[in-house]
């Protein structure tokens, strides 16, 4: 059973993609001086941006940076064993 977080993480992009695919204002006019088409797309981007903020805060678990001794690569670029 997927968790609520997983549903949001996958569901929102899919829903946004569907809206992007099928929603388009017809007989378009201007609204507040700009094409209505742009307002619709800007609203979509605003929703996507809010999702990204949530995603970055909740889903994206930043890995602690390893110490120098753990970073791979000898001076000549060849791989080295990770220090436990």
């Amino acid at each position: 059973m997927p968790s609520g977080r997983a549903l949001v993480a996958w569901g929102v992009p899919v829903a946004l993609a569907c809206i992007h695919q099928w929603v388009a204002p017809r007989g378009a006019t201007l609204w507040l001086g700009l094409p209505l088409e742009w307002w619709v797309r800007l609203a979509w981007i605003a929703a996507a941006w809010l999702y990204l903020l949530w995603f970055a805060r909740v889903v994206w678990q930043v890995e602690p940076e390893p110490s120098e001794s753990e970073v791979g690569g000898s001076p000549d670029g060849s791989p080295v064993e990770r220090v436990p």
Binding site: P13, P35, W44
Partner: peptide, 22 residues
């Protein structure tokens, strides 16, 4: 093509590029 060029390109990459970076 008019104003629609913005909607054709920007919204989907505004979401897709950051998610693909992740």
């Amino acid at each position: 093509d008019g104003a629609a060029v913005f909607g054709l390109n920007v919204p989907i990459v505004a979401l897709g590029i950051p998610l693909s970076f992740w």
